[in-house]
């Protein structure tokens, strides 16, 4: 039989360690998403304001964050900030900062997109019906915005989980690093471990992200 190097996963607590590595990645993305959701909504709301200066500032922020690869942002915060400001950040903290910055920008853009996607005549019609401004938002605009927003926001969660694979590069011991350690320790006894272990990592990432994507898709269809 072809040796796929899967046996190493059953040695000691290897499989458990791999799952713990995934949990580290999940924690980073869940904390980041929890912080960036409200910030993103605030940011998105401010971006639709009439004030040109506010809009300009947020535009610049959004563009800077979105144009840089996340890995570059991680390096800047992890290595650069310590150099410039003397902050001593752990890899985990640096990751959360980057993911919050990035998540807020993405979320802000989604909120802005959802808000301006509501046609102007809806505001006008509500006004014509005699609804007050608060009522218009409460009964007309916000429910529609939320429905458009939620599937996109859920998709952002999967993007974050996927992006956490990068934190390996700034020294966070997450699933990929654990995978490397396992392969390294068993190099002699299980030379093909790289195939089996990386395959399992691939599958675990898929199992973590896929249900969330499915949920997003389902909601999108249902609320269309």
């Amino acid at each position: 039989m072809l040796d796929l190097g899967l046996d190493v996963l059953f040695k000691g607590s290897n499989m458990l360690r791999l799952l713990q590595g995934l949990w580290v990645a999940m924690q980073i993305s869940l904390v980041s998403i929890a912080v960036s959701m409200p910030l993103g909504i605030l940011c998105g709301g401010l971006m639709t304001m009439k004030n040109k200066l506010v809009r300009f500032i947020f535009r610049v922020y959004l563009e800077i964050i979105r144009i840089m690869p996340q890995l570059v942002l991680l390096f800047i915060v992890y290595f650069g900030s310590t150099r410039v400001f003397g902050w001593n950040l752990s890899g985990e903290t640096a990751s959360v900062i980057v993911f919050v910055l990035w998540g807020t920008a993405e979320m802000g853009d989604l909120v802005r997109g959802a808000l301006i996607s509501i046609p102007k005549h809806q505001y006008e019609s509500s006004e014509a019906l005699g609804l007050s401004k608060i009522q218009t938002y409460r009964y007309i605009i916000i429910p529609q915005t939320v429905r458009r927003l939620i599937p996109l926001a859920i998709n952002l969660i999967t993007r974050m989980i996927k992006t956490t694979s990068l934190v390996l590069m700034i020294g966070v011991v997450e699933m990929l690093k654990v995978a490397q350690q396992i392969i390294e320790t068993n190099r002699m006894t299980s030379p093909n471990a790289a195939f089996g272990v990386f395959l399992v990592v691939f599958i675990l990432y898929f199992l973590a992200c896929w249900p969330i994507s499915m949920l997003a898709k389902y909601l999108e269809k249902r609320w269309r």
Binding site: L2, T163, S165, F202, Y205, F206, W210
Partner: peptide
Amino acid sequence: IELSRNTPLLVQLFFIYYGLPKL
């Protein structure tokens, strides 16, 4: 499409570059 969209590129590359040569 589901496999590709729900896994990180880094993991895909690790598998292709370090895993596949074993086969």
